[in-house]
């Protein structure tokens, strides 16, 4: 995954079954952001791996004042990368069990 300067991690153990999972996002390198960034710590949120779209969550974070509009794409990509990794690990676990 590209280093966007925005870190997204699991905020809870992934049991491999739940479709909704808690994620935690924070900025590691504010210089990589285009917009003015006010340090606001780690943002924890729930994401439905099956139904939701990372870019929508990023837009909600912009609308909630965490990020500038010009960084919506960067935040969305960071969430998308982590979601892809979670899904890949789940598929790998399932195929290993099969």
């Amino acid at each position: 995954a590209e280093d966007t300067g925005v870190r997204v991690e699991l905020a809870e153990e992934d049991d491999g079954k739940k479709s909704s999972i808690a994620l935690k996002l924070w900025v590691e390198d504010p210089k990589k952001l285009k917009g003015k960034y006010k340090e606001s710590g780690a943002i924890e949120f729930t994401f439905d791996l099956e139904k939701e779209v990372p870019e929508v969550v990023a837009q909600e974070m912009v609308e909630s004042g965490f990020f500038h509009e010009s960084d919506a794409k960067t935040v969305g990509k960071s969430i998308r990368d982590r979601v892809a990794l979670i899904k890949w690990r789940r598929e790998r676990t399932v195929s290993a069990a099969a």
């Binding site: 710590g41 729930t46 609308e63 909630s64």
Partner: peptide
């Protein structure tokens, strides 16, 4: 640790807390 909540109009809850300590040490 202090944390704050922001609820987006679409209903999603954002819980803000300090960046995890361990990560800060890594930086």
């Amino acid at each position: 640790s202090p944390s704050a909540q922001v609820v987006h109009s679409a209903g999603r809850r954002f819980i803000v807390s300090p960046v995890p300590e361990a990560r800060l040490k890594e930086q």
